[in-house]
Design a protein around this nucleic acid. Structure first.
Lengths: 304, 304
DNA sequence: TTGAAAGCGTTACCAG
DNA sequence: CTGGTAACGCTTTCAA
C-alpha cells in the first residue's frame, strides 16, 4: 500500500508543500539573514559560508540586504510574516529592535557584532586582542608615529579594533598617535592617509586601518600619490583577511577572521536556540590569525 | 468596528501569517535566486542589486548558493517545496533541469547566461559586441600579438567573450592569437600570462581576459613576476567592471556590465511571467560600456 | 456592514 | 496498520 502511494506520488510529480507543513508544525525551516551592504567584500564571503552552513542543516535562507538603516523596521515585519525560525544579523540593530525579537521569542544571533548594553547571542572575533597583537609587533619593529584610519561611527567592530590598538599603544608608551575617520571603503583609506600626512606634517611610520579594503586604499595612496614605499617607508596593516589583500600588488599584513568557523558557529547556535527556547544568550569569541604579508615591518616583541 | 479590530491587532502584536496566506492565494511572494559561487566578485554586486530590486517589488528572496554542480537537483526540489513564485538563475542549469521548471510552470529567468538549444527567459549582455569593440580599439593601437585567457569550460559568457574577440581579430586580419584556459580567479590570470609567455616565447602585445579578476592577476604577474610595464609593454583588458579594477594600482580597462539595470530587468521580467503565465520566452540584451582605464593602449579604429 | 462557512495542503490524533 | 477528522491561519464567497 505504502509503495503504491509512493509510486503514484512520484508519477504525478507530487512535492510536499512546505508552507502547509510549517503551518501545522510551526517550524518553517527558514532562517532570515540580515546584511547591511554586500559591497563590503567581507560580507559576500560570510554570506556564502552562512548559506552553505544552513544548507547542510536543511535550512533555507531568506536574504535581506539593508542599504539604508531605515529599512530595518519593514524588513523585521517581513521576518514575522514569514515566520522564520530564527535570524542571523550581520547588520546594525537598535536595542528596541532586538527587544522585539525577544518579545516574539524569535532566536537572534549577531554575526561579527554585538550590543553593549544587552546580553545577546553573538559570534565574533577578539578584535581588541587582534589589535593588541599587531600593535606589539609594529612597536617592536621600531615604528614611533602611528596613524589610525577608523571605521564608520556606527561600527562596533571598527571601534573595538581602534580602541584595542590605542590601548596597546598607550601601554607600550607610544604617544604619537593620530586617528582619522573612515567609511570602510577603498577611497576613505586613500583619503585617510592624505589626511594623516597633513596632520602629521609628514608621513607616519605605520598606519593601522580598521579593515582591509581601507588598508589597500591606503597602500595605493602611499605608493601612487605620495611616492612612499610600502613597507620600507610606511607600514600598513588591516583587518579581515579578504582575498584582494593576498594579491601580488599588496601582500597585505592583516588579521584574518576565521569566517567559515564563525559562520558554522552562528548557524549551530541559532539552531540550538530554535530547539531549546529560552536558552540564555551566549557569546562565542574567535581569535583572528596574523597574516604576515609584505605591507608592514614587524618585529618580535621582547615582552610577549 | 474596523478600528476596534485594527487596534486590538496592534495591541496583541498580531502579524498576518504569510504562509497561511500563500496557501490559499497560491502566491508566496518569494523568489528563488540560484548563484554558483559568491566568491566571484561579480556576483555579490549582482545579488545585492537583485535583492534590492525584489525588495522594491515586495518580493522576498530565497537564496541558494551552489558550490558544486551536483547540488542543483536537491536545491530545485526545495524550490518546489517552498512554492516560490519564480526563480532567477545565475548558475548553470542543465537542459533537463530547465524542462522541470517548464513542466511545473515555474517562471525562470537566467541572469547573465542562457541556453543555446532551448528558448529561455534571459537577461544578458552583448558579450560578442563588447569583445569586438575592445579588439577594434586594441588593433587600432597597433598591437599585433594577442593572448587570450579564457574562462572555465562551462561558462557560456566566457565562451562568447572569447569567440567574439577571436572573430573580430580574424576579421581585422590578425592571426597571431593564442588562447589559454582560465578559471575566472586571480591566480589563473597570473598563471595564464606565464603560460602565454611560454608559448609565445616572449610577451604578447595585449592580453584579453575573460573577466576582470583574471585581468588583475595578469597585470600583477606582468609587473611583479615578469617586470613588464603595463600598459607600455603589455596591454591588458578584462570584462565586468568590478570595483577593484578601479583601484589606483590597476585602473583596469574593461567592459562594464550595467548590473543594476540588468538586475531590475531580470526582476521585472520574472514578475511579468508570474502575472502572465504562458508568456513566450524573451531575451533582453544589454550593452557593456567601455571603461578606458590605464591598463591598455587603445587607438581609434579608422573603420568603426 | 457583518458573520459564517468552505477550502488551501499539511500533520496529529484517535478510533477501528 | 489503516482511515477518518480536526486543526494550523488565512482568503474567498455567500448569506443575513
Amino acid at each position: 500500500m505504502r509503495d503504491r502511494v509512493t509510486r503514484a506520488a512520484k508519477d504525478l510529480g507530487y512535492t510536499p508543500n512546505a508552507m502547509a507543513r510549517s503551518l501545522i508544525t510551526r517550524r518553517s525551516h527558514m532562517a532570515g539573514v540580515l546584511i547591511s551592504n554586500l559591497t563590503n567584500l567581507y560580507y559576500p564571503e560570510a554570506l556564502s559560508e552562512l548559506s552553505q552552513s544552513f544548507s547542510r542543516h536543511g535550512v533555507r535562507l531568506l536574504l535581506f540586504t539593508l542599504p539604508h538603516e531605515r529599512d530595518v523596521d519593514q524588513v523585521v515585519d517581513q521576518l514575522w510574516e514569514y515566520r522564520v525560525d530564527g535570524v542571523i544579523a550581520a547588520a546594525r540593530l537598535s536595542n528596541a529592535q532586538v527587544a522585539l525579537f525577544e518579545r516574539r521569542h524569535i532566536p537572534l544571533v549577531f554575526f561579527n557584532r554585538y550590543l553593549k548594553d544587552r546580553p545577546v547571542n553573538a559570534v565574533c572575533c577578539d578584535q581588541r586582542g587582534a589589535a593588541a597583537l599587531i600593535v606589539s609587533r609594529l612597536v617592536a619593529a621600531g615604528h614611533r608615529r602611528y596613524g589610525i584610519i577608523c571605521g564608520p561611527n556606527d561600527s562596533v567592530v571598527g571601534e573595538e579594533r581602534v580602541q584595542g590598538a590605542i590601548a596597546r599603544l598607550t601601554e607600550l608608551g607610544v604617544s604619537t598617535v593620530k586617528t582619522v575617520r573612515g567609511g570602510y571603503d577603498y577611497e576613505s583609506g586613500a583619503s585617510g592617509l592624505h589626511e594623516l600626512v597633513r596632520t602629521f606634517k609628514g608621513a607616519p611610520d605605520a598606519v593601522i586601518c580598521a579593515n582591509d579594503v581601507m588598508a589597500l586604499g591606503c597602500i595605493d595612496a602611499a605608493r601612487e600619490d605620495l611616492k612612499l614605499s610600502v613597507p620600507s617607508q610606511l607600514s600598513v596593516v588591516g583587518f579581515d583577511g579578504v582575498a584582494p589583500g593576498r594579491w601580488r600588488s599588496y601582500g597585505l599584513t592583516t588579521l584574518r577572521q576565521p569566517v567559515r568557523r564563525m559562520a558554522e558557529a552562528a548557524v549551530s547556535m541559532l539552531l540550538e536556540c530554535v530547539e531549546e527556547p529560552g536558552r540564555p544568550p551566549e557569546r562565542r569569541v574567535f581569535t583572528a590569525t596574523l597574516v604576515e604579508g609584505r605591507s608592514a615591518r614587524l618585529g618580535e616583541p621582547s615582552i610577549p
